[in-house]
Design a binder for these strands. Structure first.
Length: 348
DNA sequence: AACTCGGGGTG
DNA sequence: CACCCAGAGTT
């Protein structure tokens, strides 16, 4: 049996039933692929169901506001996916009459759709012979064919794309692509794979060369930076607080948060008090105290955010104040959502 | 080619 | 703690 024959055979026996498995509807496949980018199935599936329930068709999605889409996306991370999802829904409705383009080239022209996603949609929905290369495929191919080229190098990306394209089954491309990824997710797992019970173990080069636990090769990652966030939770006479939308490029774009003092080192009470005017415009000196003790350390892949929340009580009345009970309507980073949840419990 | 962009699960 | 997850876009 060839590589692809074994993959297809294994897939028919072992495929999991997932909500997007039994459809070729481009809207649903696209939605699932965007949600699953850099995201585990267990984490993404509830969001897939949620989006489909709120937006049964691409027209529903295109008629929503970006804030509504971001709110539904809250907690999933990589928020550009949500913004691009919304933008592309409008493009498909307006430029393509609500019907997804049916080939790789045109799909690549849509926001948020790159080589992987265009290949996935084209192959699954339209049977176009395009091999996908995701994290699972890198692992399966590098091991089975004993490839030691770093998967995150320019050379590696090209090599694995070409290799995948050369070993695919063009006649069953949808199942082949999903099967290879499923195989990587279930059988050829990153750590301690069960090689003795692998259907490819007779011809796997990594297994023969004892390289299974060293493949795929990945170049060194970026070091983690530290940032110090000081959120200013204003409480005015009417019990309202202040929220701001993050504008411009960067992390959490278009999400909401409290006014914030940002530093490369920890700020103490006095420094926070003396810097208040940089972010807040208050008539009189407010009462400032830290909510809780120590710092919340919110860990992102490349950033550790050491965060303090400061309650700023003022006797004035804010112009654009937000009631605590309305906070839940705004899309906010998980870091902020966790605080709000704790803060509410503390006061009510 | 190197960086940025999130949050959660796993051993 | 390091590593990984059905990657894409920008610099």
């Amino acid at each position: 049996m060839t590589f692809s024959e074994t993959i297809l055979s294994w897939y028919r026996e072992n495929k999991r039933e997932l909500p997007w498995r039994d459809t070729k509807d481009p809207y649903r496949i696209w939605l699932s692929e965007i949600i699953l980018q850099q995201t585990r199935i267990a984490q993404g599936t509830p969001y897939y169901e949620k989006f489909l329930a709120n937006f049964p068709t691409i027209e529903h999605l295109s008629n929503a506001t970006e804030a509504e889409v971001l709110k539904l996306w809250q907690g999933l991370g990589y928020y550009s996916r949500a913004r691009n999802l919304h933008a592309t829904s409008k493009t498909v409705v307006q430029k393509y009459g609500g019907k997804f383009p049916s080939n790789y080239i045109e799909l690549m022209g849509l926001k948020g759709i790159g080589d992987y996603t265009a290949s996935a949609i084209a192959s699954i929905c339209f049977d176009e012979p395009r091999a996908v290369v995701d994290g699972n495929v890198y692992r399966v191919l590098s091991r089975y064919f004993g490839v030691e080229i770093p998967i995150n190098s320019t050379k590696g990306v090209k090599y694995f794309k070409a290799l995948a394209q050369s070993v695919m089954d063009a006649e069953h491309i949808g199942d082949y692509n999903q099967g290879t990824m499923e195989f990587g997710a279930v059988q050829c797992v990153p750590k301690s794979p069960d090689c003795p019970r692998c259907p490819l173990n007779k011809s796997c080069l990594a297994l023969q060369k004892n390289l299974v636990d060293r493949l795929p090769v990945k170049m060194g990652r970026i070091k983690v930076r530290k940032r110090y966030f000081n959120y200013l939770v204003v409480m005015d006479r009417a019990g309202k607080t202040q929220l701001r939308q993050r504008l411009g490029k960067g992390i959490w774009e278009n999400l909401y948060e409290f006014p914030k003092l940002d530093s490369d080192r920890e700020l103490k009470q006095k420094q926070v008090e003396s810097s208040l005017s940089e972010v807040l415009q208050l008539e009189e000196p407010p009462l400032v105290y830290q909510y809780g003790k120590g710092q919340v350390v919110h860990k992102l892949s490349h950033l550790h955010l050491h965060t303090k929340f400061w309650v700023v009580e003022t006797c004035a009345e804010l112009k654009n104040g937000v009631a605590l009970s309305d906070l839940e309507h705004y899309p906010v980073p998980v870091l902020v959502a966790n605080f709000i949840s704790s803060f509410k419990n503390h006061y009510f």
